[in-house]
Design a binder for these strands. Structure first.
Lengths: 103, 103
DNA sequence: TTTGACTTGACAATATTTGTCAAATTTAGA
DNA sequence: TCTAAATTTGACAAATATTGTCAAGTCAAA
């Protein structure tokens, strides 16, 4: 349905989608075949969604898969770097490595 | 000792350091208290070094810890994104999130 | 208060990562 | 080439980390 702000966390994103659709957490979790407690944790960024869930979210909310994936991936990167120093430098080097086609 | 090219992989970096110091893999692995097979895999980028090893490497080779850490972290990021599309966008969003102080 | 929606925490079940070991391969020197 | 040392590889076990389940908890609206 609606396009998401990429700067939002994955949790914020799917909570917003759920609320736009006026669905209870319990209803969404049933559709996704996961326990409501897990969805709650995901929405509150207390747990990272399994990658396969992204597809289910995009189908359920009729929203773009790649958009959600980008949000999810960027969350993972942020999570991996959040306690580190020199984050900008790390990202810059990572991008260089990717451009060079290096592993 | 010498400063490392950041665009190199962690494996290439420590192999170069080892060779500059004319040490056998077996000697370095003994210093690091890991099996030689693990070090071999790390040098060949077939396994990611545990984070705590970075400190030992920097001590052993008398090289800057933060430099090695940046190389190691950027490798991890590359690894996480290597099979994905929209990598540049993901990195851009990740940086935005970090700048915004968001999780 | 009761009810329904959501959250939290403990812990069990799974999955992933890491270490160990032996065998295979490669390399360097006689 | 032959040999021995150096390195690599792969199978598996051990250790860690992630995920799922469930019961108890909080919170807000009636």
């Amino acid at each position: 349905m609606s396009s998401q702000k990429m700067e939002n966390s994955f949790g914020e994103t799917i909570r917003k989608l759920r609320e736009e659709n006026n669905l209870f957490l319990r209803e969404v979790s049933a559709q996704l075949e996961i326990d409501a407690s897990i969805l709650s944790k995901i929405e509150n960024n207390n747990r990272i969604a399994k990658k396969e869930l992204i597809k289910k979210f995009s189908t359920l909310f009729n929203t773009d898969y790649n958009e959600l994936l980008i949000i999810w991936l960027s969350d993972k990167i942020v999570n991996e770097l959040k306690d580190e120093k020199n984050i900008k430098k790390v990202l810059k080097i990572a991008e260089q490595k990717i451009n060079n086609g290096k592993k």
